[in-house]
C-alpha cells in the first residue's frame, strides 16, 4: 500500500516536471535562438541544419554601437522618449492617484471608467486623430510629439496604479500628521509618498517598459531624427531582404534591460499588467 502510493507520487512528479520542461522549452527557445544568432557570423546564421555550437562573434554588436552603425542615436531617442513620458506620467499620476484614493469625489467611478477606457483604447484608433492634430501643429517627427503620444497610455496607467497603491496605504498616519498641523498636501509629500515608494518605482518601471517597447506610435510619429530602437529594428526589413544578424542583435538589446527591470519588480508586474486586478 505504502509502496504503491510513493510510486504514484514519483510518477506524478515526473509528469509535472516534464510538463514544465516542455513549457519552458517553448517559452525560451526563441529568445535563446535570438541571442545565439546575434553572436553568429553571417555564414553561420544561415547554415542548414542550424549550428548550436560555435565561436561567438561580436562583430554585429561592435558595428551597431560604432559611429557608422548609428545605434547610439536610436538608443538616445528611445531613452529620452521613455524617460520623459514616464516622468510626466508619474508626477501627475501620483498627485491625481492620491486625490482619487483619498478624496470623496462623487464621480470617482466615472473617472475610473474614463481612465481605463483611455488606457485600453486601441492604439490605431488613438493614433489617427492624434496624427491629424500633430500634422497641424507640426509635431510629427518631433520628440515632443512622441513624448505626448506615450503619455496617452502612460498617464492613465500611472493614475490608475497610484490610485490602487494609495488605497492600500492606511490613512491613519496621514491623519496623525494632519493633527500635528500638516496640510493635506504636506501629508501627501511627507507621509504618503514615502510609504508608497515601491508602488511608485514599480509603476515607473512599467511606464518605461510600455514606452520602450512601443513600435506602433513611433513608426508613424517619429521622424528620421527621432527614430527609436523598435523602429530601427523594423527598418531592417527591406524589399531586398532582412538583415537578420542586426535584427537579432537589436532584439537582444531591446529585451535585455526590460527583462532585468521587469524581474526586479516581479511582484508588482502582475498587478500592473492586470491593471491592478491581481494583488
Amino acid at each position: 500500500m505504502m509502496k504503491q502510493k510513493s510510486k504514484k507520487k514519483v510518477l506524478t512528479y515526473t509528469l509535472l516536471y516534464l510538463v514544465v520542461l516542455i513549457g519552458l522549452t517553448w517559452a525560451l527557445v526563441p529568445i535563446i535562438w535570438m541571442v545565439l544568432s546575434s553572436l553568429k557570423t553571417q555564414a553561420g546564421m544561415f547554415s542548414m541544419p542550424p549550428k548550436f555550437l560555435f565561436k561567438p562573434n561580436f562583430d554585429t554588436f561592435q558595428y551597431m554601437f560604432s559611429e557608422s552603425g548609428g545605434f547610439l542615436h536610436y538608443l538616445r531617442n528611445s531613452v529620452v522618449a521613455a524617460v520623459s513620458s514616464t516622468a510626466i506620467s508619474l508626477v501627475l499620476g501620483a498627485l491625481g492617484g492620491y486625490a482619487l484614493a483619498r478624496g470623496q469625489f462623487k464621480q470617482t467611478k466615472h473617472i475610473a471608467f474614463w481612465i481605463i477606457s483611455t488606457r485600453m483604447a486601441p492604439i490605431p484608433a488613438v493614433m489617427l486623430p492624434l496624427y491629424l492634430l500633430f500634422t497641424q501643429l507640426n509635431l510629427v517627427g518631433t520628440m515632443t510629439g512622441l513624448i505626448f503620444a506615450y503619455t496617452t497610455f502612460n498617464l492613465p496607467f500611472a493614475l490608475w496604479m497610484m490610485m490602487i497603491f494609495f488605497k492600500e496605504v492606511p490613512e491613519v498616519l496621514e491623519e496623525a500628521a494632519m493633527i500635528d498641523g500638516c496640510s493635506r498636501f504636506q501629508a501627501f509629500l511627507k507621509i504618503a509618498i514615502p510609504t508608497a515608494t515601491t508602488g511608485l518605482v514599480a509603476t515607473g518601471i512599467l511606464c518605461l517598459m510600455f514606452a520602450w517597447n512601443d513600435f506602433m506610435f513611433a513608426s508613424i510619429f517619429s521622424g528620421h531624427r527621432t527614430q527609436t530602437i523598435p523602429v530601427a529594428a523594423s527598418m531592417l526589413i527591406t524589399q531586398q531582404g532582412i538583415a537578420w544578424g542586426q535584427a537579432m542583435a537589436t532584439g537582444t538589446v531591446i529585451i535585455t534591460p526590460m527583462v532585468v527591470a521587469g524581474l526586479a519588480v516581479r511582484k508588482y508586474l502582475v498587478q500592473g499588467l492586470s491593471m491592478g486586478a491581481v494583488k
Binding site: 523598435p230 526590460m258 499588467l273
Partner: peptide
C-alpha cells in the same frame, strides 16, 4: 515569464 518582457516588435521579428 520572460516572454512577457519581449517587445511586440521583437516577437514579430522572431
Amino acid at each position: 515569464m520572460i516572454p512577457v518582457f519581449v517587445a511586440p516588435v521583437v516577437a514579430g521579428l522572431l
